[in-house]
Amino acid sequence: MFHWLEKHPFFFAVGVFVTIAFAGLIEIVPNFAQASQPVIGTKPYTTLELAGRHVYIKNSCNACHSQLVRPFKAETDRYGDYSLSGEYAFDRPFLWGSKRTGPDLLRVGNYRTTDWHENHMKDPASVVPGSIMPAYTWLYTNEADIDTAYAEQVTVKNVFSVPYNTPLPMKDGSKETVALADTLEGAQASALEEAKLVVADMKSKDIQDAVAAGKIPEIVALIAYMNSLK
């Protein structure tokens, strides 16, 4: 058998391929359906939150911040409950990160406020003395891409049956529905409504004016996303 393989590059290639492929098959495939069941309390992202998630990704926040709390006392003390698989059911892509240059953000919505984020992104060291995080000043002038966020919502709803417009069970026993507009215009309008709620807690006059004029700066979307991380 071995003699034969050595002399036939094509079958040799097939052999290598099978060898390396079977590890992936065994590891990944069987658990697929099970791992993607949402836990109670997990909701899909709203349009504005998803736009904020795109801002997070655009600026590679995941290069320095993880979103994975490991089951150690030191981590649950610092960040809150450890991660459950189902909590990530609507995360495409996952944003666990691989390096904590800054703290974990999986439950940052529990202990940081809109106001805190507003100041922090503008000048991190003013809020956290000694911080080595750079300032993200452009978030205050760039506009969030609501259209693409809506396109992604439509895509995941149609292709992966993400439960928008469906009552979902919450931890306190109530039901909540994340609405998805039928049209792009509808989505833009609802994102703007969401943005107004966020901006109500913000100090910057420029941001408030921008939202009042129907624009959504990236920072507003990002904060909406951060506040949703609980």
């Binding site: 590891e27 990944i28 658990n31 697929f32 791992a35 993607s36 698989s85 189902g86 909590e87 990530y88 059911a89 609507f90 995360d91 495409r92 892509p93 996952f94 666990w96 693409t148 396109a151 992604e152 895509t155 995941v156 992966f160």
Partner: peptide, 13 residues
């Protein structure tokens, strides 16, 4: 823009 075919834990794997 595109969206990953896998979600959460599966995507991580």
């Amino acid at each position: 823009h595109s969206v990953s075919a896998y979600a959460g834990t599966n995507d991580a794997l």
